[in-house]
């Protein structure tokens, strides 16, 4: 009877487990998909699933797709096992201490619907990522770059550990600009900044967060 039970159990699980969206990270029970939830204008969305550590000190909005057949999604709070490692506020996770921490997705009745293990890692350095106006990713900013007068560029701070990009944005990041060649605009959309090339010359863009700094020189051509 036990083997019969096990066969039924395995077959049921295989048949009923909903496949997860390729763009999200499936939970351990395969009943929910977890992905970075944010504006399409924000490159943090481009990475899809939570497939990298959250940067220490950074906040990652999380989008949840619940895959329970025959049910819409109830309000599902995120419950970190240790809130000193991963903080949760609504549907945003914050990396508070290096390490790994399970985050539970719970029903209003307190049942666990799914869970995922989240890693937090200290960023080694910051870089910039360049976006198209529509939010599509143009890639890492590898070196100083040039613009023509009238051009625009959209940039995002990317925390990195070695070559690996880390997830999340820094709410307390500061941006500064030296020189008059470009203007820096906070459009209030996501966490990107818009650069507008105003006049020929050179400007130096700096962004600081988590005691780190990213810097790039922008030359505006006439």
């Amino acid at each position: 009877m036990r083997s019969q039970l096990m066969l039924f159990s395995l077959a049921s699980a295989a048949l009923l487990a909903a496949p997860s969206c390729a763009m999200d990270s499936p939970g351990a029970l395969e009943q929910a998909g977890f992905s970075a939830g944010c504006s399409g204008a924000d490159a943090v969305c481009l990475v899809g699933g939570i497939d990298a550590p959250i940067a220490l000190g950074a906040t990652l909005p999380v989008h949840i797709d619940l895959h329970v057949p025959g049910s819409t999604s109830p309000m599902t709070p995120l419950v970190p096992v240790d809130s000193s490692v991963v903080g949760a506020e609504g549907y945003a996770l914050t990396g508070k201490e290096e390490g790994v921490c399970a985050v539970l997705l719970c029903s209003p009745a307190g049942q666990v619907l799914d869970f995922i293990h989240v890693w937090v890692e200290r960023p080694a350095h910051l870089g910039f990522r360049r976006l198209h106006e529509d939010g599509s990713d143009l890639g890492r900013v590898e070196r100083d770059f040039e613009m023509f007068v009238g051009d625009e560029a959209y940039l995002l701070i990317e925390p990195r550990a070695g070559l690996q990009p880390l997830l999340g944005y820094f709410p307390d990041a500061t941006w500064s600009l030296e020189g008059q060649a470009v203007a820096l605009v906070d459009e209030g959309v996501g966490h990107r900044r818009r650069l507008m090339a105003r006049t020929a010359g050179v400007s130096l863009l700096r962004a600081s967060a988590a005691s780190l700094e990213a810097c790039v020189e922008i030359e505006v051509l006439p």
């Binding site: 159990s9 049921s12 048949l15 487990a17 009943q31 539970l104 307190g110 666990v112």
Partner: peptide
């Protein structure tokens, strides 16, 4: 914690 799962046995 009790869990909710969507499969039958």
């Amino acid at each position: 914690y009790p869990a909710y799962v969507d499969y039958l046995v």
